[in-house]
Amino acid sequence: MKPKIQAVCGFGVGSSMMLKMNIEKIAKEHGYEVDVFCGDITTCTANECNVIFTSKELGARITERAKVPVVILNNFMNKKEVEEKVLAYLQEL
């Protein structure tokens, strides 16, 4: 089954969209099939997924109520960091 990854930002339209694209790109480059979608901070913990990727500031707000692992990214646009954290998650599955 394809892992379902939720990229989360304040409203699910801007930063999470950029993050979603970067996660998809890394997964593809390494031959993983993933299902990535955008979520907003208010409703994200109600959405069904296997993992949440978000920023430090937003992660602090959802870690407690999230039912799935929350992965924190300091720099959404840094290929090295996104690659490292996405692969670390995918390789554990």
């Binding site: 409203f11 801007g14 930063s15 500031e57 937003l58 720099n75």
Partner: peptide, 23 residues
């Protein structure tokens, strides 16, 4: 308001911010 509420998460990478709100 979104930064006041959620913090400076819109600063996505060093030197760069993506200002936005909901549709």
């Amino acid at each position: 308001d979104s930064v006041l509420e959620y913090g400076p998460y819109i600063v996505l990478s060093p030197g760069f911010a993506l200002a936005h709100s909901r549709p």
